[in-house]
Design a protein around this nucleic acid. Sequence first.
DNA 1: CTCGCAATGTTAGCTCCTCTAACATATGTT
DNA 2: AACATATGTTAGAGGAGCTAACATTGCGAG
Lengths: 215, 215
Amino acid sequence: MKEDEKTMTKPATNESGQALKKSGYHHGDLRAGLIEATRRLVEDKGPDGFSVSDACRLAGVSTAAPYKHFKDKNEMLVAMVLEGMQRHRANMLSALEGIPKGTPARVTAIGSEYVNFARRENGVFRLKFGGFTDRLEDDRLQAAGEETFGIVLREVAACLGETEITPEVRRRGFMLWSFVHGLSFLLVDKKLADMGGETELESLLSDIAERVLVD
Amino acid sequence: MKEDEKTMTKPATNESGQALKKSGYHHGDLRAGLIEATRRLVEDKGPDGFSVSDACRLAGVSTAAPYKHFKDKNEMLVAMVLEGMQRHRANMLSALEGIPKGTPARVTAIGSEYVNFARRENGVFRLKFGGFTDRLEDDRLQAAGEETFGIVLREVAACLGETEITPEVRRRGFMLWSFVHGLSFLLVDKKLADMGGETELESLLSDIAERVLVD
DNA sequence: CTCGCAATGTTAGCTCCTCTAACATATGTT
DNA sequence: AACATATGTTAGAGGAGCTAACATTGCGAG
């Protein structure tokens, strides 16, 4: 194969995330490039400061290009959030590694990762849960959320010695989720900065887990 | 000038008693009219679906009129949210009437009103806490939030037999606020509709209050 | 009461944004 | 090599936020 000419069509490609700009007439993977640009811009300027035009500039394409890949602005955001939620879920799962099953420590670990994701990927978090983009109530997002909640429920069930998701398990899981969810929002909103330290956070999470999981 | 047309304009007051539309050249109280229009539109179309132009149409003025009263769109939203938060706080306070001091029932009552406000005035709630409008981080909003949290802290202190806001009181209050806050978001987001009933809600709230306030 | 000013509206218009239509270019299948 | 399709581009409609300049009204001082 002619490496010298064909592969030169995407020199801007860079594994550190710089596959954003195109070089020739065609981009190579504009869809991924736009999603990445969307992510960066939303993190940077906030969900409502984001514009498709900005994403196009970042990706180095014309403002009409996105519409070959996404129905509209909303679809772009949905695609970006879906990607983020996969990362979120993967992070939560990997946070469980090495922690004995059936212990509240697992619940705490999940909660910790949940909060940290909300802080690290603030934009994704707000988009998913903050109520932007009215019809961001996409079925896929809904399903992704349920799946994430399923991880929590499984751990709660184990802690309570249940083998199935009983109504009581669901109830306790819901309590925990509410707490962690609210905690994420409050920390991200910079309310009560004094609770934001890593040790404070761990302390709060394990405290709550114990209070909710104890009979 | 067509005098007859002016007089033919509708009375322009509606069920809420507020004069949304103007009748003559001057509106009378356009600032209040725009805030009310903003509130309705945000409730109706969601925070991101809201436009100043729509509010102008609702109020019956030109699209430039708001800028005599508000610096920009963001200021309009801040003003509307501030109004809503005053209602929120007043509701929480009146929910306390008749409940013996120092009992967890007071904390539960506040939580219940918190959640119900989030459901009733979804738009205000999302605007205040959902992270819209980057610089909605207005000092006045921040202060209003602190004040509302103060109500919770006072009740928590009473339940714990403290006379001051100790760090431990603050910690417990923060736990409760996180929970109620997250609960509001999840219910509003329609996750877990099975927990949304009034009795379910009361049960959850009192359950949590007990778990967090017990030593 | 009238005059004049400040407050409050209006119109026109700039810039930017979303999204579409029509056209252009690369890709890959036959 | 040739065509069909995918994926870009430019041009432009339509709407939103906001400003400048102009118009109307209410109100206080003389």
